[in-house]
Amino acid sequence: MDATLVVSLPSRIRELVPGFAISLIVAAAASFLSEHYGTPVMLFALLLGMALNFLADDTKCKPGIEFTARSILRLGVALLGIRITLSQIADLGWKPVVLVVVLVIATILLSVIAARALGFQRIFGMLTGGATAICGASAALALSAALPAHPQKERATLFTVIGISALSTLAMIIYPMIAHAFDLSPHLAGIFLGATIHDVAQVVGAGYSMSTETGDIATVVKLMRVAMLLPVILCASMITRRLGANVDGKKPPLLPWFAVGFLLLASINSTGWIPSALQHLGSDLSSWCLVIAISALGMKTRLKELASVGLKPILLMVGETLFLATLVLTLMHYGF
């Protein structure tokens, strides 16, 4: 049996290399364009991937693309844990923690209810709500990996990533203006930006465009939202196990391996044992894994399929974004 494994492993690697290599090239091109034009790298990766969607049907590339969209995605989510430490959360006190917990729960619940009212599956509400409340495209990809297989899951995931990336970019520009309009202090402005903008990169851009203090606080609050990814994935797994099995007849695991990896890395990182250089390496590797995976997901979709979703999903994500910003400003007004 061991001999068979040794013989089959190189064959399996050769099978995966073409599709993975294409996804890596697309991710590198997306990163280059993002750095030069200031647009979210996830959006470029999606668009470039969709331009090469014919490769997903190619016999040589298909296995590697499937592997990248599934396994590399989950590795990237697990590595997100290296960005979190318990001391970062403790330094801000209990109020921002309560704020983050309340806004995540409220936004996801509202999203699921609104999705059902608009005629969508609960899965779409979970994806858009999780992406809005937690960490944008990364949360959408993580939740998608945790949810059971569904005929509409990949299309819903891709549309969520596109919409959230666009809204996050708009928020990076508009929300600092809102902070100025409400005359928020650097401390409160950091909490507002970190609690409302979807993607980490846009939070950093918006926060440090105002001041160093605002940027530091916004980043930590945002990482607190990222830390909510684990309990949300656990809840989503429990709900989907209760609702039914995968299309292949298997129930999803109660806690996926990448969620366990996320928790372990966050716990180890909190001890201070991980050197700063290794933290940066793990964070960069996580970002690259997610960009490579979204490139592969882009190759697996068709523009015609995305165009068929209509106006309602856009209204849902815009409504979730406005709800989140309004909720945070309201809670901050009452002392959180």
Rank of each mutant, 00 (worst) to 15 (best):
F67C: 03
H187A: 05
F124G: 00
L254E: 03
K251Q: 09
V101P: 02
A206W: 01
R14W: 14
P40Q: 13
I164Y: 07
N269M: 11
G335D: 13
R242D: 01
P63L: 10
L324M: 09
V97T: 11
I65G: 06
P253R: 12
A29V: 15
I105Q: 00
A307K: 13
F124T: 07
A227E: 03
P231Q: 03
I65Y: 07
I314A: 14
I89G: 00
V309Q: 10
R242P: 02
G205L: 04
R74W: 07
L229K: 03
K304S: 15
E320P: 05
K95H: 12
P10W: 06
F54C: 08
A293T: 04
A21F: 12
A139H: 05
P40H: 11
Q121Y: 10
L264P: 00
R241F: 08
R83C: 10
S267E: 06
M332H: 06
S267L: 15
P18W: 11
P96L: 14
S209D: 10
P176K: 02
P256R: 09
G190F: 01
A117L: 14
S87L: 12
A3F: 09
L230F: 13
L9C: 05
A140S: 10
A137V: 12
M126K: 03
R225T: 03
L285F: 12
V291E: 01
H187F: 13
V318H: 05
V77G: 05
S8W: 04
F258D: 08
S287H: 04
I294H: 02
R241E: 05
L55C: 09
A307E: 04
T169V: 01
R14M: 14
D284I: 06
A293Q: 04
V204T: 08
S138W: 00
L47D: 00
G76T: 11
I239A: 09
K222Q: 02
V204I: 15
L79F: 15
A179P: 02
L306D: 04
L265D: 08
S71N: 11
E154P: 02
D2C: 08
D183A: 15
V328P: 05
V112M: 02
E305M: 11
M210F: 04
V247N: 08
T169W: 08
L158Y: 03
M299Y: 05
V204H: 03
A325I: 13
A277C: 10
G19Q: 09
S111P: 09
T39W: 04
A45F: 04
L47E: 00
F54R: 13
E35S: 13
R225E: 08
S286C: 05
A296S: 13
Q121R: 15
G207I: 02
V77A: 13
P313D: 07
A133I: 04
R225C: 02
G163F: 00
G272S: 09
A106Q: 01
L73C: 11
G129R: 06
T321C: 12
R155N: 08
K222M: 07
Q152K: 15
D248C: 07
H198E: 05
T160S: 15
L285D: 00
A28H: 07
T196K: 06
I162H: 00
L327A: 15
L170E: 01
K153I: 08
L184F: 13
G49D: 03
V247L: 13
L110F: 10
S71Q: 12
